[in-house]
Amino acid sequence: MTVIATVGLPGSGKGEAANVAAELDVPVVTMGDVIRAECRDRDLDPATHHGQVAQALREENGPAAIAERSLPLIEDALEDSDVVLVDGVRSGVEVDEFEAAFDGEFALVSIEAPFDVRADRIDERGRDKGSDEGGESLEERDERELGFGMGEAIDRADVSIDNTDSLDTFRARIRTLLTEGVAAYRSQYSQ
C-alpha cells in the first residue's frame, strides 16, 4: 500500500497529476471535494465560497480537519488499490496527519511552477475570476494557501517536480512516480 499526496500552489499541476492517476486506474482522493461537499451542506456555492469554507472548517475543527475528513475516503480507496493519490495537501499539519495514519507508506510530492506560468494556466482554464468578478485572484489564493501552512508542507516534500517542461514530460514523471514509486522516480529523475 502506498499513499502519494500532492502539494502545490494553484495552477502548479496537481489536477493534471490526478488526471494521470485516473488514467492509470489509481484512485484519487481530492481534498477539495471535502470542502465542496461542506459548501453544499452549508447552502453555499463552492465556486465562490471554497476558500471561506476551507478556513471555517479549520477554525471550527482544527487545522487537520480536512485531512481527518479525507482519511476514510483514502482508507476506502486502499481496499481496492495498492496506490492512492491524494490531491491537495495544504499544510504541515495535514502531512503529520497522513504520516501518522499511513506510517512509512506515505509520500508527499511537491509540484512547482513559477507564478507567471501558473497564472497563464489558470487564465487558459478560465478559473481565476479575480476579486472584481466575485472570486479570488491568484495572488489572493496563493496568500490563503500559504496562510494554511502550505510552505511548510512544500518544504517537507519527499519529491519535488518542477512543472515547467512540456505536458508530456510532466505526465511521464507522474506515471513513473505512481507506477514505480518514489525510489524509482528519484533514480530516474535525480533531483
Results as ranks from 00 to 15, higher is better:
89 V>T: 00
133 E>Y: 13
3 V>I: 04
134 G>H: 01
141 R>L: 03
186 R>Q: 13
70 S>Q: 03
152 E>H: 10
98 F>Y: 15
70 S>M: 10
53 V>N: 04
173 R>C: 02
34 V>Q: 08
26 V>R: 00
51 G>A: 15
101 A>K: 10
144 R>H: 08
33 D>I: 11
57 L>K: 10
73 L>Q: 14
85 L>F: 07
109 V>R: 04
191 Q>V: 09
32 G>T: 06
159 V>Y: 05
177 L>W: 07
7 V>E: 09
150 M>H: 06
155 D>K: 06
112 E>Q: 14
24 L>S: 06
74 I>L: 10
83 V>L: 02
125 R>M: 08
156 R>V: 07
104 G>C: 02
122 I>T: 07
174 I>N: 06
9 L>F: 04
186 R>E: 14
153 A>N: 01
144 R>C: 02
14 K>G: 00
179 T>S: 13
78 L>G: 01
69 R>D: 14
118 R>E: 00
82 D>R: 03
130 G>I: 01
78 L>V: 09
165 D>Q: 13
24 L>H: 08
191 Q>P: 14
142 D>T: 03
59 E>K: 11
78 L>D: 09
159 V>D: 08
36 R>P: 11
175 R>S: 14
154 I>G: 08
119 A>S: 09
80 D>I: 05
162 D>S: 13
103 D>M: 10
134 G>Q: 04
39 C>W: 00
176 T>G: 04
148 F>E: 03
81 S>D: 04
157 A>Y: 09
97 E>C: 15
85 L>S: 02
83 V>I: 05
188 Q>E: 14
70 S>T: 12
66 I>K: 06
136 E>Q: 15
5 A>F: 00
145 E>R: 04
99 E>T: 15
161 I>M: 00
2 T>F: 10
131 S>P: 08
68 E>P: 06
40 R>C: 03
188 Q>T: 14
87 D>W: 14
123 D>Y: 13
157 A>P: 14
33 D>S: 15
8 G>R: 09
34 V>P: 02
75 E>P: 05
37 A>G: 13
152 E>D: 12
8 G>Q: 10
135 G>E: 07
173 R>N: 06
11 G>I: 07
72 P>M: 03
106 F>V: 04
140 E>N: 04
88 G>P: 07
60 E>M: 00
104 G>Q: 13
39 C>K: 00
4 I>R: 09
89 V>K: 00
156 R>Y: 05
169 T>F: 10
138 L>E: 12
139 E>P: 09
59 E>C: 01
84 V>Y: 00
